[in-house]
Computed example of a mutant assay.
Amino acid sequence: MEKIPVRKYQVVEEAEIDLVLQCKDSHEFYDRYFKVFPDTKKGLDSISKIWKRRSEFAKKRPLSITTKEAGTKSAQDIAALIAEQTKILGEISALANESLEV
């Protein structure tokens, strides 16, 4: 007797994916899920499986930065600060290496 193939993952709607990508932790996701989808027939187990697949959804659909946000002054400031931080850490590393040699 043949086994009926079982679906590995349940079908997840786009709205559910959007919601899971917006939430920071599982508690926030569960609270918001039941508010956004009050008449859902999915159980807590099914909803927790959606949360567990969060990283998979994020890889497939990364949150895109709009072109308007990409050119803002704050993004340029952050890039400059990171460059300066890298330079300082390089100097600290060189000084530490000199100290260890002595």
Score class of each variant (00 low, 15 high):
I50R: 04
L89H: 05
I50C: 01
E56F: 06
I4S: 04
S48E: 06
S74D: 00
A58Y: 01
I65Q: 10
H27Y: 08
V20I: 09
W51S: 02
A75D: 00
Q10N: 09
I50W: 00
Y33A: 05
A75Q: 13
A80V: 07
V20A: 08
P62H: 07
L63V: 12
S74G: 00
A83T: 13
I88T: 14
D31K: 15
Y33K: 00
C23L: 05
L89G: 00
Q22Y: 06
D25V: 03
D25Q: 04
A75S: 10
L89E: 14
K8R: 13
A80H: 05
G43K: 14
P5F: 06
S93W: 06
K59V: 04
D18V: 08
S64E: 14
K24Q: 09
I65L: 14
A79T: 12
R61N: 15
Q76N: 07
D25M: 01
S48M: 06
E69C: 07
E84R: 13
Q85Y: 10
A58T: 08
K52Q: 13
I78W: 01
D77A: 04
A94W: 11
L81T: 05
S26H: 02
P62L: 10
K8A: 11
K8S: 07
G43V: 00
S46T: 07
I92W: 13
V11E: 10
W51G: 05
A70T: 06
C23S: 08
R32L: 10
I47W: 02
I50K: 00
L81E: 12
I82F: 02
R7T: 02
E91L: 11
L89S: 12
A79Y: 07
K42S: 01
S74C: 03
K24A: 06
T86P: 03
E14V: 14
D18T: 04
A58D: 11
L44I: 04
C23G: 00
A94V: 12
Y9V: 06
L89W: 03
E56V: 15
K68H: 12
D25A: 03
L89I: 14
E13L: 10
E91Y: 12
E13G: 03
V36R: 12
G71C: 01
K49Y: 05
S74N: 04
F57E: 00
V36A: 02
D39N: 11
I65T: 13
P38M: 01
I50L: 05
K8V: 03
K8M: 10
A75T: 11
K49E: 12
K24D: 01
K49L: 11
V6Y: 14
L81K: 12
T40C: 02
I92N: 12
E14S: 14
L81M: 10
V12E: 00
I47Y: 04
I82D: 04
R53K: 11
V12C: 04
E14N: 09
D45C: 08
V11Y: 11
T67Y: 03
D18E: 06
K87W: 13
